[in-house]
Amino acid sequence: MSELLKSMSPAGDATGEDLSFHPDDVPLAIHDLTVAYHRKPVLWDIDLDIPEGKLVGIVGPNGAGKSTLIKACLDLVPKTSGEVGIYGKPYRDQRHLVGYVPQRESVDWDFPVSALDVVAMGTYRRLGWFRRVGKKEREAAMAALEQVGVGHLADRQISQLSGGQQQRVFLARALAQDAKIYFMDEPFAAVDAATEEAIVKLLRSLNEQGKTCLVVHHDLATVSRYFDWLVLLNMRVVAAGPTSELFTEENLEKTYGGQLNLLNDAAKALSHATR
C-alpha cells in the first residue's frame, strides 16, 4: 500500500531518465512536438529552446495553440509525437521546478474556499498525501499573497474578489510553489490597470531572481515593453528569439497572416510600440 502510494505520490521518485538531446541547463527544450485534438492538429512540429532567465511572451492569433503548447509541456494534453525537456529531463521528474498559472476562467470562483486556501494549494505537492496544511504552508501562502499585493484579502471567499484580484491569487499560488520556470496562461486577460502593473512588477522581480517565465499574451501593444524574448506561434513556430529582432511587421504578418482585422491591430500596435 505504502509502496503504491509512494509511486503515485506527487513528490515522486525521479525516473532518472535523461533526454540526451536536451541539455540540462536549458529550462525548456521542445523537440518535434505535434499535438492533435480529434484528429485535427493544433500544434505542428514545434522545435524550441528557451534560454534561462528570460521573460518570454507567447504570441499568436486565436486558435494558434498557445494554451495547448503550455498544456503539452505540463503533460495536461497528450502529445501525438515529440519530446519536451525541462532542464534536460521529462516534466514528470521536474515538477518541483515548474510553476503553473492556468487561465482564470478555467475554475469555478464560487467554490467555498478563501484566497489563502487557494494559494496554499501551491504547497500541496510538497506536503504529499494525507498531510494537512499547517502553519508553515499558511505562512508561505501569506508571503506569496503579499508579494502580489493582496495580502489583506487572504480571508476573503474567492467569489468576493475582483477579476484582477482573482488573477493575482492564481499568480500567488504559483509563487508558493517556489519554482524556477513559470508557465502563465493569459495572466493579463481582462484585468484592471493596477493588476496589470502588479503582474509586470512581479514578472520583473522573478526575472531579476534569474527565473524563466513563459507568458501567453494577447495584447500586441504591450508585447515589446513586457517581454525580452518572443515566441510567435500559429500552429507552428513562426519565429522565436529576442523581442528586439523579432517584433517586425513582416513577422507579425506571417503569424497573423490573412486575418485582416488582426493585421490592422498589429500595424497599430507596431506604430504604438515604436513611438
Partner: peptide
C-alpha cells in the same frame, strides 16, 4: 477546484 492544476502537480 482545479483538476488541471492538480494534474500538473503530479
Amino acid at each position: 477546484f482545479d483538476d488541471d492544476y492538480a494534474a500538473s502537480q503530479g
